[in-house]
């Protein structure tokens, strides 16, 4: 190795060190290299919620439909976080769990007349429009697939988690990978169709 090459190597390594210090690596959430269930990068971060809401009890054990609480999913672009009175509507009447710490917290918020400051888990960039209604209408109502499966395409099996964590990439390549699949139009035909392949359907 000549002296000149050595000098170049030193410069290069210096450049790389500086470069890595300045430019933040683009990570969609989670640790670098951590993979979502379907093999895409990267797993969402763990989001600490004000109350550790047990999805596994509600949707898993009790088998409550996701849309009982996330009620706007079938008729609007956003699925909605349930209001506090939705929780209270049931929990006022469920005596058996009233002294559990999480329910106590719930009642505290209720008495303070404060909304629970839930944190967003599945956050899409501002330049993307995603419509829950179309997906739910197509796969849940028209094709009559189970709700856990339909919501699970994008949200993973939330019914087995306590607080939700993003386990799908929610990146463009990931969306497109499903939009390009041949989906059956309904249960009784073999006719297939794809999701829209048009930039402006999702980009705004």
């Amino acid at each position: 190795m000549t002296v000149r090459m050595k000098i170049m190597l030193v410069w290069l390594s210096l450049l790389m060190i500086c470069g890595s210090a300045i430019a933040e690596p683009f990570v969609q959430g989670g640790a670098i290299g951590s993979q979502t269930d379907d093999g895409f990068n990267a797993l969402g971060p763990v989001v600490e919620q004000p109350i550790e809401f047990p999805h596994n009890t509600h949707a898993g054990q009790m088998g409550i439909n996701c849309m009982y609480c996330h009620t706007y999913a079938r008729r609007s672009a956003v699925s909605g976080i349930p209001r506090l009175d939705k929780c209270m509507g049931c929990h006022k009447l469920i005596e058996s769990v009233k002294d559990k710490p999480r329910i106590k917290k719930l009642f505290e918020y209720w008495e303070k007349k404060q909304a629970i400051p839930w944190k967003k888990v599945h956050d899409l960039p501002d330049f993307v429009r995603f419509n829950h209604e179309r997906h739910i209408q197509r796969f849940y109502f028209r094709e009559d697939r189970p709700v856990r499966e339909v919501c699970g395409y994008c949200h993973g099996d939330v019914a087995s988690m306590t607080t939700a964590r993003r386990v799908k990439a929610l990146s463009m390549g990931w969306c497109v990978s499903c939009h390009q699949k041949d989906h059956l139009e309904n249960v009784s035909t073999t006719k297939t169709s794809n999701g829209p392949n048009d930039c402006w359907q999702c980009h705004k």
Binding site: A77, D126, F127, R129, N131, E133, R134, Q137, W200, Q201, H203, K204
Partner: peptide, 30 residues
């Protein structure tokens, strides 16, 4: 909120209010 706020260095143009069209199309499709 239905329209991106564009930043420096990109081209933009009339969209025929595509945000309204998309919403109407989605509603009609449902």
């Amino acid at each position: 909120p239905d329209v991106t706020v564009r930043s420096k260095g990109v081209m933009e143009k009339c969209t025929f209010c595509v945000q309204r069209l998309t919403e109407a199309k989605n509603r009609a499709r449902t």
